[in-house]
Nucleic acid binder design. Structure first.
Lengths: 176, 176
DNA sequence: CCGCCCATGTAAACGGTTACATGATTTA
DNA sequence: TAAATCATGTAACCGTTTACATGGGCGG
C-alpha cells in the first residue's frame, strides 16, 4: 500500500492541489507507481481524515481548488512507513503467463504482439533517457539528487531488460 | 486479468485438483503470477461455470476432491486471449517509492531493510538457478522447452537486477 | 472416538479501474 | 450567454488479501 506514502512524498517536496499533484505524479513518481486522478482525490480525502495533510481552499481561485500541505503527523507517518521491513513485491507478469501459454498451445500470432510491446518499451526508454539528459547530465554530491537519478536509472534498466526480453522471445518463436 | 488463463495453461499441461493446482502453481507459473488457494478455487468455479473446464469428483477419494480438466472451449478461450494485444503491464514498484521518500525525508534506517531485501532476492535467485540446473541443463530443439527455459531465465535476470539495485542503493545511502 | 489435517469454500475489507456527475471558470 | 474545459468528486465493479467456516479422512 504505497500510494498514500507516495503522495506524502510528493507533497513534502512541494504542496499543491489534487489536479496539480496528479499531473506531477505522471512525470516523476508515477513512473513507478501509477495512480488515476480518482485514486488521488480519494486518497487525499483519507489522508486529510487521518490528519496527515491539510487542504485549504485556494483564495478566490477557480473551481473548488484546494492546496494540500503535509502536517507534522504526516511526516511522522512517512518516516514510520519507511523503516518498515519491505516484503519483496509480489510479481505479476502477464507476459510470462502468455509465453507459458504459447509453449503449451502455440503457435499463435504472439510474435507480432511482442514486437508491438517492444516498441512501446522503446518509446518509454527514450522518454527516460531524455529526462536523464535534461535533469541529471552532471554529477552531484547531493545524496537526494543521486537517489532520484538512481531511481530513474533503475527505470532505464528495467525498460532495457524488457526490450531484450521481447526480442529474444521473438527469435525463439521464429525458430520454428 | 491473467489468472484464469494461467490456470487454463497449467491444467492443459496436466489435469489435477484445486489443491494440487495451488501447489504446482507455487513451483512454476506462480513465480510470475502468484495466486492464493482462495483465488484458485473461486476462479476454478468460474471457469467451470463458463464451460472452460470440468471438475469431476475423484472416486472415493478423501475430502471433496475434484479433478479439473480443460474442455475444448477452454483451449479456444486461451487461444483467443493469447493473440490479444497486451498492454505494457502497469509498473508498481514500492521500492522506488521508498527511495524517493528517503531522498525527501531521509536519512532513515532504510539501509538495513535494503540489505534484508537483497538477501531475500538472493535466496529466490538460488532457487531459480537450482531449477535451471535440474530441468534445463542441456540444450533442446523443442520450442516449448526453450520457451519454458527462457521464462525461467527472465526470472533469473529479474532477481539479479534487483540484487544489484539494492546493493547500489545501499552504497549511495552509505555515502553520506 | 477424538483431535488434527487436508481440501474446499465463504465473507468482508481494500485497492484499482471505469464511467459518470457537479459546479465553477474561461472562451467563443 | 452558451459551450468547452477544469477541478473535484461519486458510484459501481473487479481482483486481491485476510480471516474464518465446513466437512471428510486419518492417527492416536
Amino acid at each position: 500500500m504505497s500510494l498514500p506514502h507516495a503522495l506524502l512524498t510528493a507533497l513534502i517536496e512541494r504542496s499543491c492541489s489534487g489536479s496539480e499533484l496528479a499531473e506531477r505524479f505522471d512525470h516523476s513518481i508515477g513512473y513507478f507507481w501509477q495512480a488515476s486522478h480518482q485514486q488521488i482525490y480519494r486518497e487525499l480525502a483519507r489522508l486529510e481524515g487521518a490528519g496527515f495533510v491539510h487542504g485549504s481552499p485556494v483564495g478566490g481561485a477557480r473551481g473548488g481548488k484546494k492546496t494540500y500541505r503535509v502536517l507534522p503527523k504526516g511526516v511522522k507517518e512517512l518516516r514510520r512507513w519507511l523503516v518498515e521491513r519491505p516484503a519483496p513485491s509480489p510479481v505479476r507478469d502477464e507476459l510470462m503467463v502468455r509465453l507459458r501459454a504459447e509453449a503449451v498451445i502455440g503457435p499463435t500470432r504472439l510474435i507480432e504482439e511482442l514486437a508491438c510491446l517492444a516498441e512501446q518499451h522503446r518509446e518509454k526508454l527514450n522518454v527516460y533517457r531524455e529526462i536523464e539528459a535534461k535533469d541529471f547530465s552532471q554529477k552531484t554530491a547531493r545524496v537526494d539528487e543521486q537517489l532520484r537519478h538512481f531511481v530513474l536509472k533503475a527505470g532505464i534498466d528495467f525498460e532495457t531488460q524488457r526490450i531484450a526480453f521481447c526480442e529474444e522471445a521473438i527469435s525463439i518463436l521464429k525458430g520454428r
